[in-house]
Structures are given as C-alpha cells and as structure tokens.
Design a protein around this nucleic acid. Structure first.
Lengths: 243, 243
DNA sequence: CGAACCCTTGAAACGGGTCAAATCGTGTGG
DNA sequence: CCACACGATTTGACCCGTTTCAAGGGTTCG
C-alpha cells in the first residue's frame, strides 16, 4: 500500500463527500500521479504558465488569483480541502490564473493527458468532474455578486459566512471558530477593496461584535446577524464528489 | 427530418465549433427535448426556481444574473449563440440565478435526467460538457477581475473587447461593428457601476473615439487602444464544442 | 537588535453613487 | 396624424464610500 493511498484518505471519512465504489477508488488512486507538499506562500501554478495537471487540495488552504499588468491582484476563489482546480486551463495553453498556498498544503496531482481514459471507463466519475467544474463556477458567481453589488461590510460578512459554512462542512469548525489563514491583504484582494478600507470595515464589524479574532482563529459570534447583513441566501448543501 | 434538426444547425457551419461524428450528432439530436423561442426581455429561467434542463443558445443574446433581496442586480455573464448554461444548478434544487433574453432567442433544451446516458455512451461528448463548464467559469473569472480591480473606463473597455472577440468568432462582426443589444443599464449591472456613472464613462470613451454607436450597432474604432486601456490579455482561442 | 510583515489610525483627495430633471426616440392609441 | 407614455440616454450638482498617502505600533524571527 502506498503511503498516500486514496483508500485511506482522511477526507473520504467526512460525510460531506460521496462514497465511490472500490473499483472507482482504485482508478482514482492510480490516476493520481503524485502528491505535492507546499509550504505557506508557495506557488502551485503560475499565471501564464502551461500546466498539464489537475489538482485536488488534500489538506490546507490555498487561493486562485489573477493579476493585472500593473500589479493589481484579484483573488478569484479560496480553495479548501477537497476543492478541485486546473480544469479551467487548456492543455498546452498558458493559464489565466495562479494558485498559491495560504498554509502548508498537500495537493493531489492528476495528469490531464489521461483524462479521456477516465471519461471512457468511469462515466460516473466523469459526471462528478463536470459537477465540480460547475460548482466551482457557482462560487465565483457568488464572489462576483459580492464584489459587484455589495458594499465593504456586506462583502466581508458574506466572505466570512461563506468560509464558515465551507469549513463547517469539512468539520473544521469548533465552538463557532476555525483557523483562518487569510491576512487583511488577502481579504482586500478577494473583495476588491483597499487594505486600509478593509481594515476599517473589519474594525466596524468587530465593534458590532459580529465576529472576533482569537489569534489565527476566526470566531463567528453572531451568525444570524452576519448572515442578514450579507443578504445571504444559502447555497443548497449536498454531498459532493471527491476526486 | 425534424424542422429543428441538429444536423442542419447553422452554428455547426462556423469553424469556431468542433465537428462531431454523425453518431454523436444523432445522439445530441435525440437528447434534445425541444426548442424554445423567447422574445426579448422574456425569462428563460427564474432565480429560486428549480430546473431540470440544460440550455444552449441557438440564436440571439441572453444573460445570466443574480439579484439581492433589495433589488441590486449583478449580471454574471452574457450568453451568445453556442453558449451553454444550466449545469450550475443542482437537480431539484432552486437556482441561484436567472436567465433573461436580450434579443429574440431560440434555445435548445436538454433534460438533465438523462445526462448519465450521455456520460455512459458518449465519453467525448461528456468531456466536451466539462470543457464547457470550465470555459464558462473562465468568463466569470474574467468578469470578477474586472469588477474587483478595474476602474469604470477599464471595465467598459474590457467588456467591449471581450464581446467583440466573441462576436467575431461567431461571424457576427462586419466592418468592425456588431449588433449590440445591451442597454447602459445592462452594462452598469454587469460591471458593478451605477447607471449614471456608466453613461459618463461611455461618453468619455466615445470622446476619445475608441468606439461609437450606430443605432444598435457597436463599432470598435480603435481596437488596440481599447485593448491597452483594458489591460487585456487574450484568452486562447480554440475550437469549442457545441452541444 | 534590526528586518520584514501585518495591523491600525488619521487626514485628505477622488471616483463613483445618488438625486433630480431634461431630452430623445419609438411605439401606441385616440 | 398628433398626443402621450414609456424606456433609454444625458447632464448637472452634491454627497459619501473608498482610495491614497503617511506614519506608528506589534510581533516574529534570524
């Protein structure tokens, strides 16, 4: 048994992920070419680089971003364990975005070249991949609504609510709090705000006692109020595939 | 032969779309349950509604949008002929977004229920579907970068450049111009700007002679300057699947 | 002890939002 | 054929949220 065998993957024990047949699991296991360990701030992929690989975050947090030529950076999506990325890019074409680790991460790597083998032999898995691609878009959609229509405090509220829910699904939340590796600069870049204004908006929400930071932990003190402020309407939760 | 036979679909004559085997084409043809004719302003799907269908725009323009409870609306993506939507939503779950026609449209409808049959028997087609889902995300990504990082004139420039390229691919551009059914309110809602400021920014770009309107036609007068202003780096163009 | 990073705060400038009103079609009904 | 309504576009004035500039303080780590 390989040390990094998919059969023993801790994520599969979480009931937010679907279960798959052992035959499928075997395939995933041999489809996976390797596992990467990234330390915080390390880059998984570069903008403009070509990549022939697909990635699943096994542990840790990362983010997908895109920068303009003058350095302005937009964070497109925060990646949590179980999240999948790499499909957006064309084989042999430079990618429009990069992926950077927020914490130490382990990432499972799959070759794009053999993707058709998956589609030919594992239609259910293929269907899952499409689901994941569509689900990723939904998250970007949500971000776009925030950045386009909400003001600073609403955006931050929504970000917190949304990450809270995703973390909770993964069993990362304990007594209303979870490890939160984003700096204020990350929040600013994700929400299309300046650092200074992000700081002031955070201070405002803090004074309203909607949340607090305990070191690196974000504690959601008043979930319902935060939700209302963000005008949040929940995405339907269901089991999601893990590739 | 059905009147709306996929084999005679005009879109397939465009060389921006991949060709498929006649067997596959037959399947697509019978997979399609019906065709919808929408008039301008008509709603294809409603926010919060459940839909068990997938849609391809056959002709006309439409847009996907999401609104907050107080009425603020974000346009997520403009849909042109050949564009595909509906994957984002879960079967039996309410959708987060609606789709509205910008012009008179015809839309091809496929049932989500029988999607697995496609995955089981047409792996290449299944692969195409995933590609389409990922490609859709790329467009939303691009919008998010705009809305998050660019100022008003940059955003509008990018929107025009991006629609120009998409229209050109479809053979809709003639002597630098193409039919442009968006109102200034649409542009505002897509770019996260107010109507008034959109109008003033448009006036500014118009005075710089970067573009002009000739009735409903948008004419790109200085493509390169517009591109530079938008800090545009082009998406790789390749043939794309048409389902 | 300094270097690097992150968070915090104040003051001033500005881009974009809001309010209000006029103009310009374009289509409709009397 | 004119009158009117309605939607879309313009324009001006004012206001406010956010950005920018600047500086200080905290913490970690070599």
């Amino acid at each position: 048994m390989k040390t990094n065998d998919c059969k023993t993957c801790q994520l599969r024990n979480l009931d937010c992920f679907t279960t798959v047949s052992s035959k499928t699991l075997n395939f995933i296991n041999q489809f996976k070419t390797r596992e990467i360990s990234l330390s915080s701030h390390a880059l998984l992929t570069l903008e403009g680089e070509t990549s022939n690989e697909l990635y699943t975050i096994k542990s840790g947090w990362a983010f997908r971003y895109s920068t303009l030529s003058d350095g302005r950076r937009q964070i497109l999506n925060i990646l949590l364990p179980g999240d999948f990325t790499g499909l957006q890019a064309e084989l042999d074409k430079p990618m429009q975005y990069g992926v950077e680790a927020l914490t130490d991460c382990t990432v499972c790597v799959f070759p794009k070249q053999h993707l058709m083998r998956l589609y030919k032999n594992f239609p259910y898995l293929a269907h899952d991949l499409t689901w994941l691609a569509a689900h990723n878009e939904l998250i970007v959609d949500e971000n776009l609504v925030s950045v386009g229509q909400r003001n600073a405090t609403e955006r931050i509220s929504l970000l917190f609510i949304s990450l809270y829910k995703r973390a909770a699904q993964l069993g990362l939340v304990e007594s209303k709090g979870f490890d939160f590796p984003l700096t204020q600069q990350h929040i600013a870049d994700a929400m299309g705000l300046s650092l200074v204004h992000t700081n002031k908006s955070l201070a405002k929400l803090k004074k309203m006692e909607l949340f607090e930071f305990d070191g690196q932990r974000l504690i959601i003190k008043q979930y319902e109020k935060l939700k209302k402020l963000a005008d949040y309407y929940s995405l339907p939760l269901r089991q999601r595939p893990l590739v």
